[in-house]
Design a protein around this nucleic acid. Structure first.
Lengths: 385, 385
DNA sequence: CTGAAAGCGCTAACAA
DNA sequence: TTGTTAGCGCTTTCAG
């Protein structure tokens, strides 16, 4: 093995351990030890090697290293979402931010994979299955998407964002690690808050029902009505997507058919902002005529006027937790899958102030403990339940 | 959950060409030919191999392949930005969307790399220089960041988003490929539009000046004033960042010191939305008292009321173009660097309607050819007035 | 059209 | 502490 080639012609640096070794007057193995911070190298040798590395601007070839170590030192974030939502909704940004933060200490690179069609999703699954990454965080699988399960079956460490379908039953064994938020409880608190403010005809524009979060928030809405002694009314439940335009359309229809509503719970803040726009355009006063509560506490909640009351979910923290779980799973592939459920927090702003004619309730912000709904934030370790 | 080592062998599928070859009764070379769609394989052999691949669920090891081919078949998107902006601003989402779309046909994976600190940026540069990806699109390098240049020197194909510093002079030779938008012209058109609407004390909250887009939009603002015969007034220029909170603070200060302003040009829509909030909170009527124009045509522009007049930039198309340029450069590394500058388009909405008391000028929106500035928008419902 | 053989650049035993 | 020796799984001449 002489390696006669590798002259100065290649465009991209093709400097190898061999070159460094020769220059430093040591063997390839020693160079490798220095690069991998092995303690079994004498200080002077180390210095000589480091100098050679510096001078040659040597960087190890990741493919060769991965071939040997069977690790890529990178993990994937898989986003399964339509174009629309991806760029309407800051949810993904925040989650990414949290994930990226949770990985900052580790020597791991983040690989973002986006699939907007079945074909793309297949290619992406192959990519992951091939071992191109050491693990993956999967965001937004819909309905009966079996991709996460298949990857788990192949032995790939996986963490899913949001309770996967099939994990619906409270006591059912979970075979996938996932991170979720108390969607149902959050929605319940939102509606309880509206009812406490004197609202009686509370509608909802809910999210897609093939997403657990969509279903759970709708359930919470119903819980809230029931708890307040209000009757459920199918005409007040309107289907939506986590897309402003869809929510706006649903709201217009709702308003036309049920002009008497006095409150709306929207399944996301961007939806709530759209709802607000429709109401204002229709000449309704918010919150005097109609109150609004959203979900997320995204930046748009404070961009609009009146600012939106909303159910905050700790998205960044959730991202961080996903990263943590994944790294743990990579380190110990035999460990049991874990799930972490984060609490929500009702953030009261102007869009849900009690209706003026109502009795003098506490009109200022902050939570009303009497509702039993407001979960004080922090406290991430809400695992299991 | 048991899952005790589900297979006879390693946790992760370690099926190799060898296994496939044996099963199909051929040599490794032949399997490789089938996998790489070489024409030099007989149909029956091909079928046999494909069958074996299917049965064994074989996927090639990317590291081994990359080691041999010296290509990773993946490209990076490098985002150099603070947490704040990253999740306040849909700009990145749209750009990513365009990039991802531009890559859809190619057999290439997208690798997203985020750096929020110098340390992270260094690690990331090493990652790219190592040849972990075949090329990179770099978004948001500030001031005198030499990272793109260093990568180019190493022979890595690079495309930058936004004119890099050092490419300021119109006639200067460009040594880096980049995609940009006509920031200066767009800003000029915005101000011209405000002036045409009868505004006389037009302020600006501009972007960061260590970003070419920040500088260019400020220059355009000044151009617009000059063209309208309005005097430049340093007191009307307020520094900002592409962050709503920063813009809001700047606006509050401005309003306190110069309560007589009748228009504001903000360097981005999210900034403009924040400006709008401050003005409404201060009891100003928009657009009657103060008109607002933003930049981007991001979703928030139509979320707020009044909807924002804005300078649209074709972000998705820019992303697509970046991907195209990069792939071309990867295919032909010797080719000259290219740059593509996209036009902007003024989109007139409610926030900039002409002031009511003004003389009966042309009150409707749309362009004033004399200004040569306004590209008629495709008129989303609500243009004009 | 197919197989044999030679590495790609690296790490990881095993010696020395 | 350091060097020697084997490959990791794949593609790719070069024979047959």
């Amino acid at each position: 093995m002489t390696t006669i080639r590798r002259s100065s012609r290649d465009a991209i640096s093709s400097i190898t351990v061999e070159d460094v070794a020769r220059r430093a007057g040591v063997s390839r193995a020693t160079v490798s030890r220095v690069v991998n911070a092995s303690p079994r190298v004498s200080p002077e040798t180390r210095r000589a090697v480091e100098k050679a590395i510096e001078e040659l601007r040597y960087v190890p070839n990741p493919a060769a290293r991965a071939l040997m170590t069977r690790r890529s030192d990178s993990v994937a974030v898989v986003i399964l979402e339509s174009a629309n939502r991806l760029f309407e909704d800051p949810y993904f940004n925040q989650l990414l931010l949290g994930i990226s933060g949770g990985l900052a200490d580790q020597e791991v690179q983040l690989v973002l994979l986006i699939a907007q069609s079945g074909r793309e999703e297949e290619r992406l699954e192959r990519y992951i299955a091939a071992g191109h990454v050491d693990g993956a965080m999967i965001i937004g699988p819909r309905g009966n998407d079996e991709m996460p399960r298949r990857l788990v079956d192949r032995g790939v460490p996986i963490v899913v964002n949001g309770r996967p379908s099939g994990h619906d039953l409270p006591g059912s064994p979970h075979t996938l690690s996932y991170v979720d938020v108390e969607n149902r409880e959050g929605a319940r608190a939102a509606v309880a808050h509206l009812a406490a403010g004197g609202r009686r005809r509370i509608a909802t524009i809910h999210g897609p029902l093939d997403l657990p979060s969509g279903r759970d928030r709708l359930s919470g809405y119903r819980d809230g009505l029931a708890a307040a002694g209000l009757e459920a009314d199918p005409g007040l439940e309107r289907p939506g997507e986590y897309i402003p335009a869809v929510a706006a359309e649903a709201m217009r229809t709702l308003l036309a058919q049920r002009p008497d509503i006095d409150a709306v719970f929207a399944a996301s803040d961007s939806m709530a902002a759209a709802v607000l726009g429709v109401l204002l355009d229709a000449g309704r006063r918010v919150p005097d005529d109609v109150a609004i509560v959203g979900f997320d506490d995204s930046p748009v909640a404070t961009s609009v006027r009146p600012a939106l009351t909303t159910v905050r979910q700790p998205i960044v923290a959730m991202g961080r937790e996903m990263a943590r779980l994944l790294m743990r799973q990579i380190a110990d592939p035999e460990g049991a899958p874990s799930r972490v459920i984060f609490p929500t927090e009702l953030v009261v702003r102007d869009s849900s102030a009690p209706r003026p004619p109502a009795a003098a309730g506490p009109a200022t912000a902050s939570h009303s403990p009497s509702l039993g709904a407001v979960t004080p934030a922090s406290t991430p370790p809400g695992a299991g339940r």
